[in-house]
């Protein structure tokens, strides 16, 4: 079980390359999204490794925050629409 968790962590670290290098902002957001989902799965697997079922609740709350994170980031970084609702 430990090796499986380490494999997921390794793939998350590989994905982190795109966060550092990514030429544009959406690249970074997409990479952060996948890293978040990977660590959510790590939390679920850790609950079996340590035999504590409460980590699943933590994973659920983490998923909620991940969703809000992506929405807010993509709203905040985007440029205002031309001809849209300007002040």
């Amino acid at each position: 079980m430990l090796y499986l968790i380490l494999a997921i962590v390794l793939s998350a670290i590989l994905t982190f390359y795109r966060v550092i290098k990514g030429p544009s902002v959406p690249d970074r957001i997409a990479a952060m999204n996948s890293i978040g989902v990977m660590f959510l799965l790590v939390l679920v697997l850790l609950s079996y490794y340590f035999e504590r079922k409460i980590f699943i609740d933590v994973a659920l709350i983490y998923g909620v925050f991940l969703f809000i994170n992506v929405l807010v980031m993509s709203k905040y970084f985007s440029e205002p629409e031309k001809g849209g609702v300007g002040d």
């Binding site: 709203k75 985007s78 440029e79 205002p80 629409e81 849209g84 609702v85 002040d87």
Partner: peptide, 9 residues
């Protein structure tokens, strides 16, 4: 009253 930046979803 204020408008938010960004695209509309």
């Amino acid at each position: 009253k204020a408008t938010m930046l960004g695209t509309k979803f």
